[in-house]
Structures are given as structure tokens and as C-alpha cells.
Simulated assay, not measured.
Amino acid sequence: MSTTKFELQRNSFGKLILTNEAGEVFEGVVPVRAFPIQSPLVGISMVLTDGREVAWINELSDLSDNSRTLVMEELEGREFMPEISHIKGVSSFAVPCTWSVSTDRGETDFVLKGDEDIRRIGATSLLITDNHGIQFLIRDMFEIDKHSRKILDRFL
């Protein structure tokens, strides 16, 4: 599937307006990633609030600089999934317990309610959900530092 030809702009209310090749105008479109963890820059659908797809982005690099910037801004505003780079420590190896971690968004502590809140995504990725429903990503559990891996091993 190839990228649909379109242009994007924002209206005065901050909503995205998409104009396709045929000149049709769609207001309030939002980008939705098809594969948010494994391939975040590939396969993005532009959908209306009713869920109807009006454009497809095969790769973000297919877009003009302006459109790419608007899509990325919108995705960053809608998605919040900090990526854990280091596990500093846990309060206990029994759940519930408090995890102290370093992420791409800074240092934080969160409560892990149960072992079921750590889910494998693919062969190497983990998704950890805290007691407030915030999801933290470990992109590759085999590439994380030795100390963090040792802690993870106790929960997997």
C-alpha cells in the first residue's frame, strides 16, 4: 500500500485539516499508528472521529516536512508511553511493589499491582502497566543493562 497524497494544516482550534488530491477537505483528522511499538514510523492511518480512514501513510518520510511535523506533533500529543532505559530498584519482589525507573521522559516511581501487568510484546519488548494505567515500554529486554535485567528476571 502506498502513501496517499494529501496536505495537512491546522485550523484556529488546533484541529488537523486534511486536503486530498481530489480536493476533498476533512476536518478533525487524527493519526493512528498501525504498529506503535515495533514500527512506529511505518503504517499510519489518518482517520476521522467516527473511525473512517481518509488517508494512509506508508512511511513518514513520504510526507512533506510540514505534514510530517504536524503528524508527529499530533501523535506526541495523543500518545504517552515512556520508554524505560534503566530500572534503579524495586521496593519488593512481591506485588504490589514500587518501581524506581529512568525513562526517556525522566525519572519516576510507579506501583506494579500484579505480575499480569507485565506483558510481552513480540520476542523482546515488554509493556508494563502501572496502577494508574500508564504504560511503560521496554523496547528490548535483552539490551537493557545487567542490573535492570536481573530485576526483570525476578518478575518474568
Rank of each mutant, 00 (worst) to 15 (best):
K5Y: 07
E7V: 13
L8I: 09
R10T: 11
S12G: 04
L16A: 03
L16C: 03
L18G: 01
L18T: 05
T19V: 01
E21Q: 09
E21S: 11
A22P: 11
G23L: 05
E24T: 08
G28Y: 00
G28S: 11
P31C: 07
V32P: 00
V32I: 10
R33T: 02
A34W: 12
P36F: 03
Q38G: 02
S39F: 12
P40V: 00
P40S: 05
L41V: 13
L41N: 10
V42F: 02
V42A: 06
G43K: 00
S45K: 12
V47G: 07
L48M: 15
L48G: 07
T49G: 14
G51M: 10
G51L: 07
V54E: 05
A55T: 12
A55Y: 10
N58I: 07
E59G: 15
S61D: 05
D65Y: 11
R68V: 01
T69V: 02
L70V: 12
L70K: 09
M72C: 06
E73S: 12
E74C: 13
E74W: 13
E74T: 11
G77K: 15
E79H: 10
F80L: 15
F80E: 15
M81L: 08
M81R: 12
M81N: 01
S85H: 03
I87K: 03
K88F: 06
G89L: 07
G89S: 11
V90R: 00
S91A: 11
S91H: 07
S91I: 04
S92F: 14
F93M: 14
F93Y: 11
F93S: 15
A94Q: 08
A94T: 12
V95F: 06
V95Y: 00
C97A: 10
V101Y: 00
S102H: 10
T103S: 07
D104E: 04
R105Q: 09
R105P: 03
R105A: 08
T108G: 01
T108Y: 02
T108I: 14
T108P: 00
D109C: 13
D109E: 06
L112G: 05
K113W: 01
G114E: 08
I118A: 01
I118R: 00
R119M: 15
I121R: 12
I121G: 08
T124N: 03
S125W: 02
I128R: 00
T129C: 02
T129Q: 13
N131V: 02
G133N: 07
Q135D: 06
Q135K: 10
R139F: 03
R139W: 03
M141C: 13
F142T: 14
K146F: 14
H147G: 12
R149I: 06
D153V: 12
F155V: 10
L156N: 11
